[in-house]
């Protein structure tokens, strides 16, 4: 597995992060690192603070305690300096796409290029064309508005917008939630191919056990405000932690694991 052999400075370092909303404690003490060129997944039950952690890493929410470093820069500084040029180095795909509804798909994808670069319209158009083709959207969808697209297409369009600046790192918030199994599998393939083509580091929040088995190099399971376990899916499926066991050995977890075995990715003994 590539995760073990990856070297270099970590892309993301989360150390001792705690988060409280009023009385509610979301994270007690969360630490993890994400290495270059790996697919890192954050998993865990509903309401365990996965999405909150993601928002904290990308600087949309400030944690109550601890530090988060993105490319070695404190995430609290991201906002202060308008994020330049760190913002150009990562892309975010939100759960429901968050496409701008007044713009066509192609215009949506072009937004970061128009805002942050001085490229000629011709080159912008060409780059947008490549990205739209890259995420596997049909050629006639470029001129359509978001409300004319299906959920899966919207997701792909959002991904195209996230990678249009050729970032080193992309964040995916529940990329396969609500997609049918075929399209979800296709989306996993897409993420893998983008990772190899563009040399991306991928951080994703997901519930989708199939998707975890298929594409995640390493997985962090959150629960009780802490990281219950980090490792490959094989390692985690051997874990003794009751919550992780329940997560992976519940009926769905078992089915996904069997599927993974079927696909030739055998859990280690």
């Amino acid at each position: 597995m590539p995760s073990a052999t990856q070297t270099g400075t970590p892309v993301i370092e989360v150390s001792h992060v705690s988060t409280r909303f009023g009385q509610a404690v979301v994270h007690k003490d969360v630490s993890l690192t994400v290495n270059q060129r790996e697919v890192f997944a954050i998993a865990g039950g509903n309401g365990c603070g996965k999405s909150t952690l993601l928002r904290e890493i990308i600087g949309l929410t400030t944690p109550s305690g601890g530090t988060i470093r993105l490319f070695g820069v404190d995430s609290r500084r991201l906002e202060a300096s308008a994020g330049q040029p760190i913002h150009r180095r990562f892309g975010v795909m939100f759960q429901h796409g968050a496409l701008f509804s007044s713009l066509t798909l192609a215009e949506n994808v072009a937004v970061p290029l128009r805002e942050h670069t001085k490229l000629s319209p011709r080159l912008i158009r060409e780059i947008v064309d490549v990205k739209i083709a890259m995420v596997g959207l049909p050629a006639d969808s470029a001129g359509k508005f978001p409300n004319e697209l299906s959920g899966g297409m919207r997701r792909r369009a959002a991904l195209a917008r996230a990678i249009v600046m050729d970032p080193e790192l992309i964040f995916l918030d529940e990329p396969t939630a609500g997609l049918d199994p075929m399209i979800a599998a296709g989306f996993d393939e897409l993420v893998l191919s983008l990772k190899t083509h563009l040399g991306l580091t991928v951080v994703m929040v997901t519930h989708d056990l199939d998707s975890l088995w298929r594409i995640a190099d390493r997985v962090a399971v959150l629960g009780d405000g802490e990281v219950l376990g980090i490792g490959t899916m094989e390692e985690l499926s051997e874990s003794d932690d009751p919550i992780i066991r329940e997560y992976f050995h519940g009926p769905r977890g078992r089915a996904a694991m069997e599927q993974a075995v079927w696909n030739g990715r055998e859990p280690e003994p």
């Binding site: 490549v130 739209i132 083709a133 050629a139 083509h197 563009l198």
Partner: peptide, 22 residues
């Protein structure tokens, strides 16, 4: 080699119709 894939990808692109339906 790390750029070869990208160049190949770009070569096979088809220009899209940005004004379809508009």
């Amino acid at each position: 080699p790390e750029f070869a894939e990208l160049v190949r990808l770009v070569e096979t692109r088809a220009p899209l119709n940005h004004t379809a339906g508009r």
